[in-house]
Design a protein around this nucleic acid. Structure first.
Lengths: 215, 215
DNA sequence: GTCTATACGTAGATAGAC
DNA sequence: GTCTATCTACGTATAGAC
């Protein structure tokens, strides 16, 4: 009788286990950062949470910095995917731009440890890896494209540079979110001193910087 | 011959020396934070810069946390004084509000280590002392009063709560400043991707949320 | 892969001599 | 007030046994 081909070769199983453990370590790291602040990550606590000793982590990541780098890339990828999905769903519309601002806030509320790592810089000496920067640049490109389409669609003035609009959206989104996270991180988007201001901000931009014919 | 009365008694001299050394320690701490990031303060480096050994710092401050707390209070006091001076100079005017936004950015550019400590929260476990909170609350009161006067002066709509205006100003100021500091901290206020947007933001608010008769 | 043991560095803080 | 010496704790990381 011919030997049955296993679903996974030993090598594949090893790889799968390795990947699963790596993912578990990253998740544990996020939990620690969420509890202690992004800067306070420490390997022993991560190890404890995944049921091993600190030195064993070095089987999966060559250094603590590598864990930060992996989380940065993961976070940027997650957030970029969200932005792309929003773009696909809403196209270049005011509703889409409002959703994008709300999504920035929601991302911070739901993933405060990633928000800190990506958009504040609380970890002394942390520098994103090239792979992380690739994701960060992708994010900028998505945002720039949305604004460009909004200009082409006549929603925004063509005589104002797309990057200026983009910077305004970034600054306002970040300002609201940073204040929300600093003061009322437990409140959901749409509520609280700052989380409730998104529609007002959209109205602000829309009234002043839409082309006349779009009013 | 009667003995001349010294300018300072020994006790007074001791006190003066103590105060001067305390101030030097705080300044050294600021220098360290500016170089390494606010979270990376360490006592040995402070001591080195003031020409003593780390344990000697305990003559002046009972703990590292006490140094952070003193800096927080000092920073809030400095910034509050600046706001009061602006208020006295400009009263409740659009120029004054624009100056206030620019001043927030300038404070961050000139005192990045204090900006981090006061307005971002990069130091794990840091909690302002009651004295620090007193200064922080004073700051809020100053801001609230300016907005109230602006409403009374007819610059802002009376049907929108003063605190909502205040939160909008805070969020926008902080958004611009945080992005400026993250991306172009070396550029002066008024320049760069974000530092140049203050007049636009003022125009935005002014056009949309001024009472009709003020247009 | 995981462990124990440990190297190695650094931090904040304290004791006690001068 | 300042020092040396030291304590205590914790961090990342490595070596080598199993």
């Amino acid at each position: 009788m011919q030997q049955a081909r296993p679903i996974l070769t030993p090598e594949e199983r090893r790889q799968r286990n390795h990947d699963e453990m790596s993912a578990a370590i990253l998740q544990a790291a996020r939990d620690v950062m969420r509890t202690n602040g992004a800067a306070d990550l420490n390997l022993q606590e991560i190890a404890r949470r995944v049921g091993m000793r600190a030195p064993s982590l070095y089987t999966y990541f060559p250094s603590k910095a590598a864990i930060y780098e992996a989380l940065f890339e993961m976070g940027m990828r997650m957030y970029g995917d969200q932005m792309e999905a929003l773009h696909a769903q809403y196209g270049a519309t005011w509703a889409g731009i409002e959703q994008a601002m709300e999504n920035y806030l929601n991302f911070a509320i739901e993933n405060p440890e990633l928000y800190q790592l990506l958009f504040e810089r609380p970890v002394p000496g942390f520098v994103p890896s090239p792979e992380g920067m690739l994701q960060a640049n992708r994010l900028i490109d998505i945002a720039r494209n949305i604004v460009r389409e909004a200009i082409e669609a006549g929603m925004l003035r063509a005589d104002i540079p797309a990057d200026k609009y983009m910077n305004i959206f970034i600054a306002i989104s970040h300002g609201l979110t940073a204040q929300h996270m600093a003061n009322e991180p437990h409140l959901p988007a749409g509520s609280g001193r700052f989380g409730s201001l998104i529609p007002d901000m959209i109205a602000l931009i829309r009234q002043v910087w839409s082309p006349p014919q779009a009013e």
